[in-house]
Design a protein around this nucleic acid. Structure first.
Lengths: 135, 135
DNA sequence: TTTACAAATCGTAATGATTACGATATGATG
DNA sequence: CATCATATCGTAATCATTACGATTTGTAAA
C-alpha cells in the first residue's frame, strides 16, 4: 500500500488526514519491513517532530484496524509494516533489519480439509532468518 | 512432554527440581493448550500457593530456554504450552480456550527452494479459530 | 543424617511499554 | 473564514515484567 491509498482509506472510514498521521504513514511507506513503535518514535524525534505517546499508539492501533498496517511479534516486540493489498501471500522476515520477502506458498487449502469441525478465522505463516545483506 | 521428561531436562541442564518448579510443570502438563503467565498465577493463588512474580517469570523463561515450554503471541498476550517432543508439526489454536490440534502439513521444503540466499533460522505456521467445543 | 553452600524463592520496589485524561490545536465542511 | 468534532499534547496512571537484598531450600558430600 502507498501513502495515497492509505489516506483514502482513512477518509473512507471517517478519519482526518492530519500532519502527524501523514508523518507516520511516510515512515512506514519508506520502510519496506517490520518496525516497532520505538523505531517510529526515534524517527519522529530525529526530525524534531515531537509526538505524544497518545498519538503514536492511537494511530498504530487505528492503522491496524482499518488495514493500513499489519502486525506481528518478533523477538518479543510488536512490529508493524505497511499492509500488502495485492494477492494473498506470506513473508520471510529478517531478524536483524526487519525487511521482508514475499513467499508465494500457502498451505491453507490442504490444512482446511483436516479441520472439518473447526471454525477457521485466520492463519499465520512466517519464515525467520537473515536476509542476504544482513548475513 | 510429560512432567518426568521435563524434570530430567532440568537436571541435565544443571537446574534444581524445586517444589515451585514442579507446581508450574503440573499446571502446563494438565493444560493441553496455550496459557498466559496470568493464567498460571491465578491457578497457583487458588491452591493457596503464593508465588513471587520473580519465580513465575524466571521459570517461564527458563522452561522456554531448555525446551520444556514453547511460546506464541495470541490476541496481544504471550502464551505458553508444553513443548511437543515427537515429530515436527504445527498447531490449530482455539482463540477462546487456547487448546491446540496438531496439523501435519508443513510447507517448508517448498519454501526453502525460493529462499536460496537467505539464512533460515525458524518458521511459524499457526491456524487460529474456534474449536468444536467453543463454537 | 547432617552439613554446607550454591541456587531458588520471597516480598517488594523499579522499570518500561502502553493507555488514559483534561486542555489545547487543527482539519474538514459549509 | 467560522464552526466544531476530531486529533494532538504533555503528563499522569496503569499494567506486565524485571530486579534486588534477604531468606529458604535442594543437592551432594561428609
Amino acid at each position: 500500500m502507498n501513502i495515497n491509498e492509505a489516506i483514502d482509506l482513512l477518509k473512507e472510514n471517517g478519519y482526518k488526514a492530519t500532519g502527524k498521521r501523514k508523518d507516520i504513514l511516510n515512515y512506514f511507506a519508506d520502510s519496506d519491513g517490520y518496525r516497532t513503535a520505538k523505531d517510529l518514535i526515534k524517527f519522529l524525534e530525529k526530525k524534531d517532530d515531537a509526538v505524544s505517546f497518545d498519538t503514536i499508539y492511537r494511530n498504530l492501533h487505528l492503522y491496524n484496524e482499518v488495514g493500513i498496517l499489519e502486525t506481528t511479534e518478533l523477538n518479543g516486540e510488536k512490529h508493524f509494516r505497511m499492509n500488502c493489498t495485492h494477492h494473498h501471500h506470506h513473508h520471510f522476515i529478517c531478524n536483524k533489519c526487519g525487511k521482508t520477502k514475499e513467499i508465494e506458498v500457502c498451505p491453507m487449502d490442504e490444512v482446511t480439509r483436516s479441520l472439518a469441525n473447526y471454525e477457521i478465522d485466520g492463519h499465520k505463516f512466517e519464515i525467520y532468518g537473515l536476509c542476504p545483506t544482513c548475513q
